[in-house]
Simulated assay, not measured.
Amino acid sequence: MPLERFNKSEALSLGVELELQLVNTHDYDLAPYAEDMLRLMAHTPLPGSVVPEMTSSMIEISTGICHSAKDVIAQLTPIRDALVKNADKLNIAVVGGGTHAFQQWHERRIYDKPRFRELSELYGYLSKQFTIFGQHVHIGCPDADAALLMLHRMSRYIPHFIALSASSPFVQGQDTQFDSARLNSVFAFPLSGRAPFALTWKEFEAYFERMTRTGVVRSMKDFYWDIRPKPEFGTIEIRVFDTPLTVERAAELAGYVQSLAAWFLQEQPFTPSEDDYLVYSYNRFQACRFGLDAVYVDPASGEHMPLREHILMTMTQLEWHSEALNATEALDRLRADVDASQNDARWLRERQGKERLLAEVVRQSARRFRGAV
């Protein structure tokens, strides 16, 4: 199957997808209510969409095309409110976060959809372990070559995205000592990691053709890269974010991505190279493990610095662009949390330190998602 043509999109347009947890309100474990939730949501006219995910305790919501972080929150808020209302009817709750704190993967059920059944047959137990929850951000690109250049420039900032969104410190009842343990499950898949270094669509088409000849790949959906092109939308899709605990944080992260993209398009601040990837895995690991307390290695200079400092320095560089995009408030809120060394992983650990009961942490997370705390 040939690679589809890269469609036109409006440069810097946004789209956001959020994978969400469905939990019961008895012990706050995951609950297989995706089909019921989708049935109820089908009766509510909303922007974007609500669709099933790999296992039946997950759903994915998405916005339509947005033009700013404020557009994103304007679309996510009514979807969130409808989810909460319908969850109440089912005596369940909707929760953000990159992992459920104590669910057991072997208890999960694969959602009855042909692609999910096919993936389950291919990947075995990894499919149920893929009951993890991420935010994906699409950013519109003016053309296919610009999309690849954008993709490789964004790769330097993958540690920022991981640390700012990290919300998965607990797995199967244990503190993993990672801020983002979710990504460890993603890395188990053979076609995960980074995209190949190609700066023209012609080069990328040649790579895709070679991969399809092997029989390993049939479409772009088979790649679980941290960032991948989405030719049908005319975007690149950033996939390393944990799902935040609130839709407000999801919109703020989208505003940060859009501000970076504007900086790249309008100022062309650097030319990416294959050497950028010499420290890519190290930087990504540091951000997953330590969050905002990570060390960041600058791929151009080799300088080591606190990731927190690199994020704050970058936000200062983006001020003019964020102002032009009406994203100043979004970046200010992110900056305040970076200054305070606060992300969702730390909030979850603080709640567990106080409550000593993960079910109560999940309950409070559900209240936070619905805007009650």
Results as ranks from 00 to 15, higher is better:
D226Q: 08
S180E: 02
D179F: 06
V16Q: 00
W263G: 01
F102S: 04
E35I: 03
L151A: 11
T316S: 12
E252H: 11
S365E: 02
P78S: 01
P45S: 12
A87P: 03
R346D: 06
A324V: 00
D81E: 13
K113T: 03
E248F: 02
M1P: 07
V373K: 06
G302L: 08
V217D: 07
T176G: 02
F161T: 10
W320Q: 14
K202F: 12
G302R: 08
D344S: 14
E107H: 15
P45W: 15
G124Q: 03
R213V: 10
R356Q: 14
V72S: 01
P47V: 00
G64V: 01
S68R: 00
R351N: 05
C141Y: 08
E274L: 15
P47Q: 00
A372N: 03
F116C: 02
D332Q: 14
R153L: 03
V247G: 01
S68W: 00
A146N: 09
Y33C: 06
H321I: 00
N24I: 00
N283C: 14
L22D: 06
L292N: 05
A300S: 12
L245S: 07
L278G: 11
L46Q: 06
P47S: 00
R228Y: 04
P299C: 07
L357R: 15
L119E: 05
P169A: 09
D112I: 03
T200D: 08
Q266M: 12
R356M: 12
V16T: 02
D29T: 04
P45E: 14
L253M: 09
Y33M: 09
F189P: 08
A163S: 13
L22H: 03
D344E: 14
A163I: 10
G193C: 04
E355H: 14
A146S: 15
A340W: 07
N283H: 13
V137A: 03
E248N: 08
R349K: 13
I227V: 12
C141S: 11
L312K: 11
Q286N: 15
S57T: 10
E10H: 04
